[in-house]
Design a protein around this nucleic acid. Structure first.
Lengths: 198, 198, 198, 198
DNA sequence: GATGAATGAGACTTCATTCAT
DNA sequence: AATGAATGAAGTCTCATTCAT
């Protein structure tokens, strides 16, 4: 909903910036940061190339913004899951979400995971650390759910669950096979269900 | 061991080619395919840039050769593991090998996994399929071990084990934390040990 | 002192214009005209970039204004020196001023001289001629002092004195050595003192 | 003279590099380093733009090479002057050379002096220091001549002579007047002649 | 076969200037 | 008058690939 109090310009500007961020998040996911050119992103956002630099001083800043966009999505997802009353349901909801995105994973892998892997191969810039931070955000939330389920060593369990997600995304992507997501998703769901049964 | 029957020329040429392949495998692992230049590889292999094209018509062919080099390493590893008499020991040896490489994983991730993820973001060239093939090779071997252990659904178990490896490598890499490899490695070993106990 | 008769708008506008001119003179001296961007000047003057063009149609006009600002400073200096009763003292005061500015000269050279040298390398625009005019202003005044000292060929003497100033500024700047200014300044002072001894 | 023992390629390559250096020295003198583009130099040297980077990794390296080219010219000049038997004649020969170049000075100033002034306005890169070194080379040689003339404080005299040259070049350039070079040149020659007459 | 050099397309980035409000 | 945003032409630099010897 556009607030008519702010000038049309500011609205357009904010919208344009957001368009750029969304285009960056999407295209970087699909092509990788290295293969993505500023022109690719500008074209998708329908912004003249030169104008991109009004919003982002360097390509790396755009990649960083794309990362933040993924972080924002993750926070939205966590927010939705937090409305579920039971931590077990929350974890199962998370897994369900992963499986629901299987077609995207098959084609391009996990947005954050593949970007983290790509950025880790750089020596400079610190973008790799930003990527690590986003992944840690997920780990921390998952750990908290295991803790609420009174599980021992919730940190390790979080590592296992998130690791399984990254692994299944990578395999589904490498093998071009959505069934990987379904089978592993089902296994993880059953695992969560089995917890604390003893 | 050099076979004195082939002319010195060919021997030297073969050695040069092999140097290039090894350099490519190593540098592509560390920098990613996109960030690696032909000049990087040529320099590391101590081969003049122009000469690279005598052995590889395109950069993609070099990347493909790097992938084959990883495949060769994998086959060597499998060959060593196959000497172990027990499939359970073979799987545990595989996991042990993963954990033993944790420092490399922390810095650059799994050579094949990260390369597969990078190549999957391309539309053309078919290199992504080659990467999938290498990963499938590992999956197939692991599956065979589970089958020899009389486990039900060995294919899914292979997916779980290899997926866990890819996931823990990615997390260790993204978090820059070798402990991830150790904890997950220990868990996987315990899991393998627990199999068939019933 | 602000004249309350002109509307606040105009006063503010005039102040803004003056801020721009001063910032331009300063930054162009320190960075050179070519390396100085409109944004640099706008930022230093605390004026929005877009607004600069309300006062100056082109960047060259701003450079021209910077040149005029140096001319204004020169005229102020000449005005102060003219209050001295003796032409010999006036010339010595001029030299003293040069030496007093030695730290600035060491870092950035003579504001007018370096700008003249930079502008002379352009083919179009005529800014080089404006720079020549400012330098000629100084030459003319110095010539007049020599004339009042009854020196033969005052024009040549002016050339020698001002040339010595430009030369010592350039050398001090290139060698990053303020002592150059001191030694040459002392020599020039002694020279002026020696004049007309005959 | 081309040595037929080196391969034609190497000869051509060396020649091309030298063409680039000469073009850079010339164009940078005429346009200034900032206004000179790699394309300008490439065009003048008849070299494709991309190829320039085979010889010089950055534009700054080309500017540095231009500076070295001026240094080489200076060394050649010094070499010629050193064949003169008398230090007084050597200094007068130097001045004569300056005046002989007056048309170039009028249009573009002293190659080394204007470049030094331009480079001193940078904060990074160290090119300013290289420029200072070239100027110091001249100063040192001039100082040595004064020393051989048994003059007191030869260092200051060198500063005075070289400073006068830089000053007269700048004024001739700014005023677009070759007469400046002639008059100051004549004065300096007379000064050298008068030395030690006492 | 071998190799230093050449080529050209294209990437990122800067910036004077203009525009819309 | 004022101003954040827009524009597009350049400029520097990289690099896969090809060429000439």
């Amino acid at each position: 909903m556009t607030d008519s109090k702010e000038p049309a310009r500011a609205r357009a500007a904010g919208a344009k910036r957001q368009r750029l961020v969304e285009a960056a998040a999407d295209i970087v996911h699909r092509q990788g940061a290295e293969r993505t050119t500023i022109a690719d992103i500008a074209r998708a956002a329908e912004v003249p190339v030169g104008n991109v630099y009004y919003y982002f001083k360097t390509k790396d800043e755009l990649v960083s913004a794309a990362l933040s966009e993924h972080e924002r999505h993750l926070n939205l997802l966590i927010g939705r899951l937090n409305r579920l009353p039971d931590p077990r349901e929350r974890l199962k909801g998370l897994i369900e979400g992963w499986v629901g995105q299987r077609d995207l994973a098959v084609r391009y892998g996990c947005p954050t995971g593949t970007l983290a892997a790509e950025l880790a191969k750089r020596d400079q810039g610190g973008l790799d650390i930003e990527a690590g931070r986003v992944i840690r955000l997920l780990l921390t939330w998952v750990e908290e759910q295991f803790r609420q389920l009174d599980q021992p060593d919730p940190e390790s369990l979080a590592l296992t669950l998130v690791g399984a997600y990254q692994g299944m995304s990578l395999l589904a992507n490498a093998l071009r096979d959505p069934a990987v997501m379904e089978r592993e998703g089902a296994r993880l769901t059953a695992w969560i269900d089995s917890l604390g049964a003893a």
